[in-house]
Amino acid sequence: MKALRAGLTTLTIVLGAISAQAQECGGDFEQWRAGVAAEARADGVGNAGLGALAAAQFDTRILARDRGQSVFTQDFDQFAGRMVNAYRLRNGAANMKKYAGAFSQAQQQYGVPAPVITAFWALETDFGAVQGDFSTLNALATLAHDCRRPALFRPHLIALLKLIEQGVLPADVTGAWAGEIGQIQMLPGDYLAEGVDGDGDGRVDLRRSVPDVILTAGRLISKLGWRAGEPWMEEVRVPNDLPWAETGRTNRLPLSQWAAWGVTTRDGGALGAGPDAGLVLPMGHKGPAFLVYENYDVYLEWNQSFVYTLTAAHLARRLAGDPAYRLGNPEPGLSPEQMRALQEKLVALGHDVGGIDGVLGVNTREAIRKEQMRLGFPVDGWPTPRLLAAL
């Protein structure tokens, strides 16, 4: 109990500091809200939407969540091992069967296969079971007022007011802490622009109507760049002497080239025909390996976290019938504290790591690859104690 009180005291101090910072950066909340109201009114929002805005509250808990997304300090095996579980695989298969008609329509209209939509649906809300209990209005008002990403969230706040004005959503709608709504966790601007009436009842309900959810997800994924009929990811086996500097998501090469270097299918067979692909090594050259195609980039458009996108893509492959990936024997990684120490060294060497946060993001991986190349290490983007010591 004593430790709990100490923790709560620390949290109170942190939240107070966040609140003071946001008020200073975003200015007076009431004055800021008046500016949003004027913009919304000019954009066609009437009394219902403006009345909802008048009741919006600044919530320091939202900023605490925004600053502390520690889940992304996990490595791929930790995150995927937790998220790709028996419940999601079992219920995903059952839902693809139950709503086969809606999935078929989504594939016909947008070219997106059922396993791809289902994987996002599973990871976002466990098929609608966990949609979030934060006030969407307060979340978006807080994030739009905050100085970190106001240009991103202000349009979504006004879109929410439009949805309230139209009667699509109630003013007290709840969702995720970052303002996403419904079973696939869409921000209001996307809800407004991409929502599809999948069940033909004359309205788009992404909280309760599964056909609406499936068709809307298909449309959004298509708009993000999905290429119908093409693969997104394939697990492979790699040799010990691959030219590692040629690996990486963006370095797409013909499958014939990967085959010439000794890359095979997961079970050791020859690679088939297909578009160019990059080779991703989420835990280094001794860990799991995946060929990723242009469709994989759509996952990064959905969520920019490397571990989330690779997990979503793998879950989709599992739902399509693939077995679990082979972990291999990766070298030990770094703790979040060690990752921050590594990022500090990389910054000192002139690299842009996207912030010293202990997260192995895209920028940090690229900086690691450059230093591995300079030091003569296998260029796989995986941070190890050996690399940290060498720097």
Rank of each mutant, 00 (worst) to 15 (best):
W244T: 08
T311S: 13
I221S: 12
P243K: 06
G274F: 11
A289Y: 04
A122K: 00
R82C: 00
V379N: 10
D205Y: 06
V173F: 03
A159I: 09
R41D: 13
A119I: 01
P188M: 06
A100K: 01
E124P: 00
P239H: 06
K2T: 13
V210P: 12
I18M: 12
G333Y: 04
A114L: 05
P150M: 09
N329C: 01
M283G: 03
R61E: 13
T60E: 15
N251F: 11
A20H: 10
G358L: 09
F103M: 03
N329M: 06
G229F: 10
F72T: 07
E230N: 07
I368C: 06
R219H: 15
S256A: 15
W261M: 15
S222R: 15
G179T: 00
I158H: 13
P113I: 07
A316W: 01
N240Q: 15
Q257W: 14
V112G: 04
W121G: 01
V307F: 06
A52K: 02
Q304V: 06
I18V: 09
Y99H: 15
A390T: 11
P239L: 09
F127C: 02
N91E: 14
S209T: 07
R369N: 13
I117N: 02
D133V: 09
G16F: 03
A178T: 00
L123G: 07
R249C: 05
L192E: 09
A56K: 04
V84I: 15
G44H: 02
A390K: 13
P243E: 09
P275K: 08
P170I: 06
V353G: 05
T309Y: 01
N295G: 04
E371D: 07
W244S: 05
A3T: 15
L15R: 15
L349C: 06
I158N: 10
Q131P: 06
L271K: 03
V204I: 14
L255T: 07
A320F: 04
E331V: 00
P211Y: 12
Y296A: 08
A228Y: 09
H351D: 10
A106F: 00
V236S: 09
V307Q: 00
A94P: 00
A56D: 05
T174D: 04
